[in-house]
Simulated scan of single mutants.
Amino acid sequence: MENSFNPFDNPSNRVLVAQSTEVERVAFYKKTYAHVAGGVLLFVLFEYVLLQSSAIVEFALSMTQGYRWLLLLGGFMLITNYAESTALKTTDKNLQYMAYAGYVFAEAFIFIPLIFIAIAYTDGQGFAILQQAGIVTLTLFAGLSAVVLMTKKDFSFLRSALTIGFFIAIGLIIAGSLFGFNLGLWFSVGMCVLAGGSILYQTSNLVHRFTTEDYIPAAIGLFASLMLLFWYVLRIFMSRD
């Protein structure tokens, strides 16, 4: 679920955020985080609509068993890669928005089993758990983003470590699905650390890698990292019950 953007080769008519004026940088950051917020709202809307259909919920739950979960993850990764590459390779905002919306829908679908279980099997505390996990996730996201935006530090050095970490995580997920063992609390904690590193890396790209017109692909990268963090924060909260 890691997001690894390689920003556009910078054409002559594009200005890197790092080389732009203060006014242009602030406008870029506002657009980017507004699109992240829009992605979160669209995710909530998609999730609500999907959970209203018992057929969709049953199908999503059936996909969490054994190799089916691996197929679902594989399909999700394909959609992720398509959305990322589309948003990065085109300057057509309509296509970028379509890629973003498609990615948000894929996130909403893959979250169905986790959110359904959180609501249905936590002794009536499901909505409180979702709220608590959401607050913790947004607080961590805001704090990590602020660190980068305030210090302007380049966290691109994290890319290799994140790539290795996510490959290890994927290997463990595959092993757990095939051999039926629970990865447990500490795996979720480790994934939260990886997600935090991904937020630092993606926010660093805002400052050092993107141009002032790349706010949609930048938002996709941040949204992906945010949702990865939310997934494992929610798992940690659910493990307490």
Results as ranks from 00 to 15, higher is better:
222 L>K: 06
229 L>E: 14
37 A>H: 03
240 R>S: 05
210 F>W: 03
225 S>H: 05
82 Y>Q: 11
91 T>W: 14
28 F>L: 07
96 Q>Y: 07
210 F>K: 02
31 K>Y: 00
25 R>N: 02
196 G>I: 07
173 I>A: 08
181 F>Y: 15
193 V>S: 07
15 V>T: 11
194 L>G: 01
210 F>C: 10
35 H>K: 10
106 A>D: 04
234 L>T: 01
115 I>P: 00
33 Y>Q: 00
170 I>E: 01
6 N>Y: 07
233 V>A: 02
66 G>H: 07
18 A>N: 09
33 Y>I: 15
160 S>G: 10
150 M>S: 04
99 A>L: 11
101 A>H: 01
116 F>P: 00
63 M>C: 05
15 V>R: 06
168 I>A: 14
211 T>N: 14
84 E>A: 15
7 P>M: 02
227 M>A: 06
154 D>Y: 02
151 T>D: 03
77 M>W: 15
198 S>W: 01
105 F>C: 09
21 T>M: 14
99 A>C: 05
164 I>R: 13
218 A>P: 02
53 S>E: 02
128 A>V: 15
231 W>R: 08
181 F>D: 07
237 F>M: 10
160 S>R: 13
13 N>L: 06
128 A>I: 06
115 I>Y: 08
137 T>L: 04
136 V>F: 10
206 L>A: 12
144 L>R: 03
119 I>Y: 09
213 E>N: 05
167 F>A: 14
41 L>Q: 09
8 F>H: 13
150 M>F: 15
37 A>T: 11
72 L>F: 06
57 V>P: 00
184 G>Y: 05
152 K>Q: 08
127 F>Q: 06
155 F>H: 03
192 C>D: 13
88 L>F: 11
186 W>K: 09
153 K>W: 10
147 V>C: 07
93 K>T: 14
143 G>F: 12
14 R>K: 09
3 N>M: 08
88 L>W: 02
214 D>T: 04
203 T>H: 03
43 F>T: 08
222 L>S: 11
10 N>W: 02
8 F>I: 14
239 S>T: 00
62 S>P: 00
197 G>E: 03
105 F>K: 04
55 A>N: 05
223 F>M: 05
183 L>R: 01
10 N>C: 10
43 F>Q: 13
47 E>N: 01
129 I>P: 04
156 S>G: 05
42 L>F: 05
148 V>C: 05
101 A>P: 00
157 F>N: 03
231 W>F: 10
212 T>I: 11
214 D>P: 02
13 N>T: 04
30 K>F: 09
3 N>S: 04
155 F>S: 00
149 L>E: 04
220 I>F: 11
190 G>C: 13
172 L>Q: 01
148 V>F: 00
218 A>K: 03
212 T>R: 13
194 L>W: 02
159 R>V: 15
135 I>Y: 07
221 G>E: 01
179 F>S: 13
107 E>I: 12
47 E>D: 03
1 M>W: 13
219 A>G: 05
155 F>A: 08
74 G>A: 14
152 K>S: 10
199 I>A: 07
168 I>F: 12
144 L>K: 12
129 I>Y: 07
157 F>T: 06
133 A>L: 03
189 V>Y: 15
233 V>H: 00
106 A>G: 09
1 M>G: 09
225 S>I: 05
40 V>T: 06
184 G>C: 03
44 V>F: 11
26 V>H: 10
170 I>D: 06
85 S>M: 13
108 A>T: 03
222 L>Q: 04
